[in-house]
Design a protein around this nucleic acid. Structure first.
Lengths: 253, 253
DNA sequence: CGTTTGGTTGACGAGTATCAAATGGGGTGG
DNA sequence: CCACCCCATTTGATACTCGTCAACCAAACG
């Protein structure tokens, strides 16, 4: 399995999008590392409470849950790559994010009894069921952790709203590549050589572009020697120049 | 409805963005009404805990707080109209939302010790300081309430990401008008006759449009007899036709 | 094999951004 | 009270990005 590795320490971050910010207050006992902290925390706490670790395995294109279904559990991504998506009643779809190891699925529906979005696996993966109700009651730190995750998601979304609203196609693509690279690097992967798990259409949907525009943008960047594209494998060749593209500034409105 | 299958009837698109949603689970004691519930709850609980109610008055264009400042408090909007905005280091600004009575300012930075966005008053208003730390410790229901508000904000943001990514200019404007109308109505205002508190530029910024495009869109809608525009006063003349505009469907990507 | 799915590229047009100018209202100071 | 200016808004002309439609290719799959 591609994603299985132990997680090293927090490393560098790309721009606005990584969560460089961490409250030192609160959660004294639990946290110190980045994303995957929740995983090891669960591994430690669940046995202590006498709760079994429920694993759920999924294959590519399989739905973890769908919007409207009764919310039975929260899922922690342990391996694999997922997307969460909103679908309006007139069929418009919007991918709200790509989720990987350490991310929680279902957080956005915490206050409801039905899921608020679809969660779909993009390749085979494993989920850990998080017994939210029990943990909330028996472990006060957990509640704060959840709160922090929610706030982080809001800031992430706001940053994307800023990017999508002010940047051109190429800049959006580059921003995405940097974001993905930073997240992968935080999980111990290369950070230079990216293996996309989503189609051009899904990428375009997330960036509010058409699949053609994404393909063209990648081709342009490759033609300029900034990246190398081979299907879903992308190599960042010239980070400086790519950053320059972003700094070139978008519309200010 | 986009997200909330718990809500009964379709009333048209206005409801998509309003917070019609309320989990019946949890918060048993506290909630029943709409937004202003938190206000009356505070009014009841603060005296009970021996905490004074700190009011803060602000004038138009005055900053409540700025991104990066130490996070001293959460603010509940009691009166007035506010915007929250993100500013990237290269100067691009993005208004992340307009906040009115019952909304909380600063929620998105709960896990940090510095604010994550700017909050600016658009007219004179009054804020209530929320002693978050005390309430969290002494009142378990409060924590859940906060969690719910965070999750709701995420869904709101996602819905706007969907709208901005898939709708044309006129549809975005109509969506905004419906959303505003629904929120005002929930506060006991007309719902037909809207008094905008923001400039065309701010509206455009929020909708990822230029101020000219917003002006033109409003003019078009007025020319078709769907709305009446007089500066910042807007009257919804033909809700059905406006809904039709939305249903006409946007790009599907 | 044929079929399906994902990706690339081209030609063209629609929808907005951009630049520019004119209008109007509200406030301030004379 | 008026003149003036500043700001917000409206409207027009033009440019340009990106969406749309289409053809083609490659790989995967039944």
């Amino acid at each position: 399995m591609l994603l299985d590795r132990t997680v090293p320490a927090e490393t560098g971050h790309a721009a606005d999008f990584a969560d460089a910010e961490f409250a030192d207050a609160g959660c004294a006992a639990a946290s110190q590392a980045g994303d995957a902290a929740l995983e090891s925390w669960l591994q430690r706490e669940l046995p202590r409470l006498g709760l079994p670790l429920q694993r759920r395995r999924v294959r590519a294109k399989q739905h973890v849950f769908r919007a409207g279904q009764p919310r039975t559990a929260l899922y922690l991504v342990h391996a694999g790559f997922f997307k969460t998506a909103l679908v309006s009643e007139d069929g418009r779809e919007k991918i709200t994010g790509f989720r990987m190891r350490g991310d929680l699925l279902g957080l956005d529906a915490l206050d409801m009894n039905a899921y608020a979005c679809d969660a779909v696996a993009l390749d085979t993966g494993e989920l850990w069921e998080v017994p939210f109700a029990r943990l909330r009651n028996e472990c006060p730190q957990f509640q704060e952790r959840i709160t922090a995750l929610l706030a982080q998601e809001i800031r992430r979304d706001w940053n994307w709203m800023l990017a999508l609203g002010t940047l051109g196609a190429d800049q959006r693509v580059v921003t995405f590549l940097f974001d993905l690279a930073a997240r992968l690097q935080a999980l111990g992967f290369s950070g230079e050589c990216l293996q996309l798990r989503m189609t051009r259409a899904e990428l375009g949907n997330f960036l509010s572009l058409t699949l053609e525009t994404v393909a063209r943008s990648l081709s342009r960047l490759q033609a300029r020697g900034l990246i190398e594209v081979a299907g879903r494998e992308i190599v960042l060749r010239d980070r400086a120049a790519l950053s320059g593209l972003l700094a070139a500034g978008g519309r200010v409105h």
